[in-house]
Nucleic acid binder design. Structure first.
Lengths: 217, 217
DNA sequence: TCGCCTGGTTAGAAGCTATCACTTGCGGCA
DNA sequence: TGCCGCAAGTGATAGCTTCTAACCAGGCGA
């Protein structure tokens, strides 16, 4: 099954890297990404501090890797739900977010100071957007644009590089994808950060209602 | 003008606390809140490390204070724009966010691990929501709810404790306020985190178009 | 079999938060 | 006015962090 064209050394190396990331995810789930400690991971794996620097250049590279994995996970989850409609995709998105809030915030939360998204990540991000666009195209006719929406549609006609994989999509479809993305992100972000907690509001109902505005029923 | 019922000692104390927070904001603007350093602030103020512990119990208390100030700033900004309509309020919100993105993320970004919002903060948050509700009431008639929105309205009829200051507001008005909040937060959060950066999209146009869906023109 | 290279170790530098013990000097009171 | 107490600032220290440097052992290929 495994290609195993690699030397035993390389296979071991990959395995250790994977275990480090696994422990990192556990720790992130517990204390959050900002308090992630290489030392603690090393100790947990039964080796001492600086050994990890054989596998990761430093904390930043590890976090960058985790961010990439998080994007990869979301992209795969979306791909796996590509046969669902927009409503289903929305539910899949929310479930994925609730499954591990810290993972969500790693992508969509406060940007980390020095971090700059590498090429890999932007590629995966556009893959996610591509899946979303597929669903938006399949979702049927959009309602006629009103006011500023028409202006935005005209603008999107000329700024659609981010949807390069869907050259025939109507501007209203692009607009719907952007609305899906930004509106649901707004709700999820508020929910996961606990801003609905003290308000006695059911986030799921808000989410359902908001998702309902995005596609014809 | 100043009450100055306080002793000189207390006035000095307050002044130092204020300067510490000022330096903290400068540092946050530079390196972000997670990398904020008490030591660096102390050195910048010409005194040495542990002196700051006379004024703040620790890093957490300082950050809590900064979060409260950020909320206070947003609430005041909103109060000062209470005579504007929803469209104006949206623009004020965006300007406030762009003015200091780190301040925005301190409120709406990734929650800090151990932090639990004190009573003060929830009070200020509901003051912000109150101003928003005023504007929503003044914004005129809502469009008829569709599908899940009607269900949400029915739910909101029974869960309106968060809008206790506006007992006569229609559920559709509450729903509009929630949409204003969550949708604009979604866009702002994505913009400030740089997710539109590589997409060649003008965040302002997206924001205008999204705001335009929130109130009759 | 020999040698290199990988992966582990300990030691240490620089930085952080936070506590403790100590001194100094301002402020309020007699 | 003079004196005393308490607040404020100091250095030392513990314990944590990331990360570098130097060193050692063992497996893998020539």
């Amino acid at each position: 099954m495994t290609g195993s064209t690699a030397t035993p050394r390389e296979r071991y190396r990959l395995q250790v890297r994977a275990e480090v990331k696994e422990r990192a995810w556990e720790q992130i789930a517990g204390v959050g990404a900002s308090a992630l400690s290489l030392n603690a991971i090393a100790k947990q794996m039964g080796m001492s501090g600086p050994a990890l620097y054989r596998y990761f250049a430093g904390r930043d590279e590890l976090i960058t890797e985790l961010i990439k994995d998080a994007y990869r996970s979301l992209a795969d989850t979306f791909r796996g739900a590509a046969d669902l409609d927009l409503s289903g995709l929305a539910q899949v998105l929310r479930r994925w977010a609730l499954e591990d809030p810290h993972r969500y915030f790693l992508i969509y939360g406060t940007p980390v100071p020095g971090y700059e998204a590498p090429q890999d990540v932007t590629a995966i991000a556009s893959e996610i957007m591509s899946t979303l666009l597929d669903a938006c195209i399949a979702a049927g006719p959009e309602e006629p644009p009103t006011g500023e929406q028409a202006a935005l549609d005209a603008y999107l006609e000329g700024h659609r590089a981010w949807a390069a994989g869907h050259p025939t999509a109507r501007p209203a479809t692009l607009r719907r994808a952007l609305a899906f993305w930004s509106r649901l992100h707004g709700l999820l972000s508020l929910e996961l950060a606990g801003h609905f907690a003290g308000m006695d509001l059911d986030p799921e109902l808000l989410f359902e209602a908001e998702a309902g505005t995005l596609f014809p029923r």
